[in-house]
Amino acid sequence: MELVFLFIGGPEIFIIFIIVLVVFGPSKIPEIARGLGKGMRQVKDATNEIKREINDSAKNQGIDTDIVADINKEVEQVKDNIDDLTGPIKRNM
């Protein structure tokens, strides 16, 4: 199984790493990585804060925020009904 990240495969990531190494030098790589890590953390924190505000606002307005759980429950019921219907008729893969 090949490593794919944002539609970029392993060889492309390796080439990008080599270019970054040549352009910035080995001494700057840890500093760049720290900066990227901090930036990603800030984006994640901001995203979580927005989600929390949306959920709080929805709860204050009386909107059901557990829709995903309800959908999953319905899907499981349909799967159980199909399993009951097919019974011993299963395909071997």
Results as ranks from 00 to 15, higher is better:
residue 67 I to M: 01
residue 22 V to M: 04
residue 87 G to F: 10
residue 73 K to P: 02
residue 74 E to G: 01
residue 90 K to V: 13
residue 3 L to G: 00
residue 16 I to Y: 08
residue 83 D to N: 15
residue 57 S to I: 08
residue 15 I to F: 04
residue 91 R to W: 04
residue 43 V to C: 00
residue 86 T to D: 10
residue 55 N to I: 10
residue 48 N to E: 14
residue 67 I to P: 00
residue 47 T to E: 08
residue 66 D to V: 00
residue 82 I to E: 06
residue 67 I to N: 03
residue 83 D to T: 07
residue 67 I to W: 01
residue 54 I to Y: 08
residue 42 Q to H: 00
residue 41 R to I: 00
residue 34 R to K: 15
residue 29 I to Y: 01
residue 49 E to T: 07
residue 88 P to M: 02
residue 21 L to D: 06
residue 15 I to C: 02
residue 24 F to T: 09
residue 67 I to A: 03
residue 23 V to I: 10
residue 25 G to N: 06
residue 74 E to M: 06
residue 82 I to F: 08
residue 87 G to Q: 14
residue 36 L to H: 05
residue 55 N to F: 06
residue 28 K to Y: 09
residue 6 L to S: 14
residue 19 I to V: 10
residue 68 V to N: 01
residue 20 V to S: 03
residue 9 G to V: 08
residue 81 N to Q: 09
residue 77 Q to C: 03
residue 73 K to G: 04
residue 71 I to K: 05
residue 63 I to Q: 06
residue 92 N to R: 02
residue 22 V to R: 03
residue 9 G to H: 10
residue 81 N to T: 01
residue 40 M to T: 02
residue 71 I to C: 05
residue 24 F to Q: 09
residue 4 V to M: 12
residue 19 I to K: 10
residue 59 K to L: 13
residue 56 D to Y: 03
residue 11 P to V: 01
residue 84 D to C: 13
residue 1 M to F: 06
residue 39 G to E: 03
residue 24 F to C: 11
residue 57 S to A: 15
residue 4 V to L: 10
residue 60 N to Q: 12
residue 55 N to K: 09
residue 34 R to V: 15
residue 65 T to Q: 07
residue 2 E to M: 03
residue 21 L to C: 08
residue 71 I to V: 11
residue 38 K to L: 12
residue 5 F to T: 12
residue 77 Q to S: 12
residue 77 Q to I: 06
residue 80 D to S: 08
residue 66 D to L: 06
residue 54 I to R: 10
residue 8 I to W: 07
residue 64 D to F: 02
residue 63 I to L: 11
residue 48 N to R: 12
residue 36 L to E: 04
residue 8 I to T: 11
residue 9 G to C: 07
residue 70 D to F: 01
residue 40 M to F: 05
residue 37 G to I: 02
residue 5 F to E: 13
residue 30 P to Y: 13
residue 25 G to F: 03
residue 62 G to R: 10
residue 21 L to Q: 13
residue 35 G to P: 02
residue 3 L to Y: 05
